[in-house]
Design a protein around this nucleic acid. Structure first.
Lengths: 194, 194, 194, 194
DNA sequence: AATGAATGAGCCTTCATTCAT
DNA sequence: TATGAATGAAGGCTCATTCAT
């Protein structure tokens, strides 16, 4: 693992534990076993590290979910795959996801914070996949005709991230909701499997 | 409006705009037109201001949603009312909600951050209302028998907060989703409207 | 002496000894016996301290030289008074003058360095006094008719600051030049004293 | 142009624009198109670059002015030549001169800054030339008998560097002063050309 | 209740310099 | 000769918090 990767890895982990703004670059350096100056050799600013972390994560998410959709034989199945994938992803990449759920907003809402194009694009990609799958399901008859694809895509994305947020961030015990989410959605959008 | 209220009001607004950790107490003081020292006369620490803001908000939320549930004649209707209320609330109190969605997690995940009992209790209250309504709907026959109340309550709460988060925080244009959310849920949980 | 004045005084002294950019704010604080933070309570930036020092000095210079000119009965005498004053000033305020000769240029040549209006104005004032005195001398017949007032004013100012620079900054031994400067100028500009 | 020369050339230019201490070695390297490490292959420290720049400049100055003096037939003419040369030099080598006027003092006033012997020697050379020329003029009857050569040499050097400083560094518009300087000096020191 | 001067710890970042290759 | 990764010391500045008044 290169020093740069090591810095990045350490940063995700610390950002996830303590939050971006409560993580000094000195901690990252110490934990990663490098001199603090090296961080700024690889990243212009501390925020650039965050940006890199988020970009990488979104890329991984897209790279993982895109092929799934293509592999599925029906739209409804594709939606299910995306939900499955999301929950698996939130287990495999809980740290990065935590960082995103916590600190992305703070960076975005500032004037000129984070060059957000890459991330905006990623977010649109994720929602786009859901939308396409729904449209496809309406065409192949696995999803009810009255479902509006775009709005429902937003809604599903909101639900998935909201549920992950609940599980990862909230101070209360949250049960595993994956199967319930799938059931909930099936009942709502699947054309009845009579 | 008392000085204390004025501080509180200014704080919500600034926290919403810039985030908690990017808002110096000096800004709050200047904006509120008081000396910086006065803030620490009314609040022990800066975090206490946040805590107060969040507590107030949760109280308002509960105070607004509890009576609604009682007024409804069926469980399904109660669920609908809660959804309606959430969207209305997110319009009327967008600043405070923004603060919660952004900065609550950061405060909670720290060791010894925020005396979280009040907030934990509030969160449980909100989810409890959803759970009760669902149970009631199952009893009065307006909600399908196979719906698991607790899990579904979490799921609904995740969906609502996730969708609000999308609308308030994300850098992309999000359509109004209130009606879609209601439709989506009805299709999923309402016993067939024959 | 107020804390602010004490910071200012210490700063001049250290800037004079080591130069602006080689003087850490921490040194100023330590030497002045205040917490480093206090410096930034009174001055926005380190450069602001420099600006204040320079402004004060220029003001002192102008406040000291203006009345002299008015008191003199002839233009030539006024020029002599200004030269006298300059040398006296460079003895009484050698530290501040040192700072100006060393560090003013560095601050000015930067884009957006120091809000230079005040200083530009001061500089023009100093040169203006020389110019007026020369003009007056030409009118009252104590200064030769062929002397161009504006150019000569610049030249005199250049000579005075150049000579001070030599004395204060250069690593070589420089004799006292005050009388020579006066003689030099008299020979050049005084209408023959017969 | 060798890499070393290229570094040197770039350094003068950047030092002139931004000042010595505001010019990072990394900028020099980038601008010169070499790796940062190479700079330290050729120069022990960053200050050594400055030293080299200044030495080169002084050498050029002396190499240019010495022969002039010898060529002149009278002392007065020699003084005039030196003044002419100075102004021409300040046009041809404005960058290097700027560096000297700005940053030489800062380097000298430090304990152990710059091994200043070379520069001290150069400075003495420049003043020596003026002094010799004046003495010669007194002997050959072109310069007034009462002029003290050494003091006047200092004074002239102060005037020349002071005027250049005014032109190169000050934030105000300064007219071309070359002819005025010559006239000014002639009136002061030339034995009347009757 | 109210002020604002004062503190001091800590943070991000810069930068000259070294060194393995 | 040439590179650029790596270092580590230092610096300017911010900010929550305290305290005398």
């Amino acid at each position: 693992m290169s020093r740069k990767e090591s810095i990045l890895k350490t940063a995700v982990s610390l950002f996830a534990q303590r939050g971006f703004s409560a993580t000094p670059t000195s901690s990252i350096a110490k934990e990663a076993g490098v001199a603090e100056g090296l961080i700024f050799h690889y990243f212009r600013t501390k925020e650039d590290i965050l940006l890199q972390v988020l970009k990488d994560m979104i890329e991984t998410y897209l790279a993982g979910s895109k092929p799934l959709v293509e592999k599925c034989s029906t739209g409804l199945e594709a939606v299910k795959s995306l939900i499955d994938f999301h929950f698996q992803f939130s287990i495999d990449n809980s740290e990065a996801l935590l960082v995103l759920l916590r600190d992305l907003p703070n960076s975005f809402l500032q004037e000129g914070g984070l060059s957000n194009e890459a991330i905006k694009h990623g977010l649109n990609g994720v929602i786009g996949l859901l939308e396409q799958s729904i449209s496809r399901g309406k065409e192949d008859g696995t999803i009810k005709a009255e479902i509006p694809p775009r709005e429902t895509a937003f809604l599903l994305h909101g639900m998935l991230s909201g549920v992950s947020r609940l599980q990862l961030l909230e101070p209360i015990q949250v049960p595993d909701l994956k199967d319930q989410v799938i059931d909930f959605c099936y009942r709502s959008i699947a054309k009845n499997s009579r």
